[in-house]
Design a protein around this nucleic acid. Structure first.
Lengths: 195, 195
DNA sequence: TATTTGAACAATTGAGTTATTTGTTCAAAT
DNA sequence: ATTTGAACAAATAACTCAATTGTTCAAATA
């Protein structure tokens, strides 16, 4: 299954239809109609319904991660990078209606368990963004010399937790205040001195 | 339904049987047999199967919260209280086999959503423990003047997240290291100066 | 050759039925 | 005030059957 243009069209169509009907209620004909072809032709590009679904989500998640990575790379300072990462990676979803709908219908996409994580490799990449910022901050003497591996996992877990609270469970707007207060608290715990 | 001795016996029997078979597979006759009476007599004390189940869990959760509260009250210092609360409330479950089994079979008991929380009042009490420690630490000038409400919710959410990761999802022992590293980081973010 | 299609096939699902189990009630007994 | 056995009602499990839908593939098309 090469990532050709046609494949991308199918993935986009699939994301839209899955967002509207959910995995179970979506038929391959729905996807085919949205993509402007017959359902049998879909099988020329993808292996099956479940694979199509996971592939469409995977695609969206990778775009998310990459746009955060790009935003981070525009900053020099480790503290600034941390702030951009925290806000950007959290708010990104509010602009992605389709992915959000899918998340609500399929809460298992975000899990607190590594074993259950269907998108582990992608999340590994996201954790690498955190880890690099920690390493930079430590080597520049701005952060305490924390246990980088465990702190990275800790921060990533909190991030996932907030995504679930905000976009899956749809808690009130107080979640945003909590997120700000929490990241400020943690950044204070990381930094050696206040300037 | 008065909380008489017989009621407590029934709740204890119920917790044990529900822990072994889960809610669905447990029959009222199983509970009755464990409690040494006939199933019709159970209805003299409890309103129904679902109520019995929730009541048994509620009971166990309240004991948990109260024993943490007692441990905290034995410390004077806000920082010490924080440390005791963090470790005690987290490790308590490792000694409660029945409650742990129930938690695994019924993951909805610990939720990241207030709306879905069947034990909200009990958790409100637990959050009050956090809040009081924050207030004490702030008034004594040891903690920064954080937003107490949001920080309390933030800390409690992290706590619930770790309970889920550790006891429901059964992640590896690295979760304990994460918890330690995380609480140390947060405590550093709370405290005005290192001594 | 690379794509696309319609028709056929196989697997899954949903509705409907029945028998059995189990939650709940209650009058009578202790 | 408690406890019980018998009866009833509700939920569940096992099964069937029809319809839907995922998947394959030989033939058509570009």
């Amino acid at each position: 299954m090469p990532t050709t243009d046609k494949t991308r069209e199918i993935l986009a169509a699939a994301l839209k239809v899955f967002a509207r009907y959910g995995f179970k209620k979506t038929t391959m004909e729905d996807v085919a109609a949205e993509a402007g072809m017959t359902k049998s032709n879909i099988y020329f590009y993808v292996a099956g319904k479940r694979e199509l679904y996971e592939h469409a989500i995977r695609n969206a998640l990778i775009q998310w991660r990459d746009s955060v990575a790009e935003a981070i790379s525009e900053k020099e300072d480790a503290v600034e990078k941390f702030r951009v990462m925290a806000s950007m990676s959290f708010e990104y979803l509010s602009h992605q209606q389709d992915l959000r709908s899918i998340l609500i219908m399929d809460p298992g996409i975000f899990t607190l368990s590594h074993a259950e994580d269907r998108f582990y490799e992608i999340n590994q990449g996201a954790m690498l963004l955190i880890k690099d910022i920690l390493l930079q901050g430590i080597s520049e003497g701005r952060f305490y010399e924390v246990d980088v591996e465990h702190t990275t996992e800790f921060l990533f877990s909190i991030y996932i937790m907030f995504l679930i609270k905000t976009y899956v469970k749809s808690e009130g707007s107080s979640t945003f205040r909590m997120y700000e207060e929490g990241t400020a608290l943690i950044l204070r715990g990381l930094c050696r001195k206040d300037t």
